[in-house]
């Protein structure tokens, strides 16, 4: 589930990334702050969603900032919970408990935007 961000072989990583974009691979990270009601809701929502729409083509990491506070700065986290869609581009940050499934799907480009 975890991906090593500091890959030794950057070319290989780049190629892997390209391949992942090609086959619609998702890299998601969910940042939480402790075991709050909101955190639990968000974890449940994102897991359900991934299983339903991205089965077999996603990496999901759940980060509890209470345990790893140093990661908040690196990931530019302000709000909690925050789901960061790192791949495929563009980068998106979904903030909230992710209970608004429609918005989550739109943000993850799994549902066309209403215009």
């Amino acid at each position: 589930m975890k991906r090593n961000p500091a890959s030794e072989d950057s070319t290989a990583a780049f190629e892997q990334t390209l391949a992942q974009i090609g086959d619609g691979h998702y890299v998601l990270r969910l940042y939480l702050t402790g075991h709050t009601n909101r955190s639990l809701k968000a974890v449940q929502a994102v897991k359900a969603l991934c299983e339903q729409y991205l089965k077999g083509r996603y990496d999901l990491e759940v980060v509890d900032l209470c345990d790893q506070p140093e990661r908040a700065q690196a990931a530019q986290i302000i709000a909690a919970p925050t789901l960061v869609k790192e791949l495929p581009p563009p980068l998106r940050r979904l903030i909230g408990d992710l209970t608004n499934t429609d918005r989550v799907l739109i943000a993850l480009d799994l549902k066309p935007r209403k215009n």
Partner: peptide, 10 residues
């Protein structure tokens, strides 16, 4: 993108 309730705990 805002999807649900959040705070600035981050």
């Amino acid at each position: 993108e805002e999807a649900g309730e959040y705070d600035l705990e981050g």
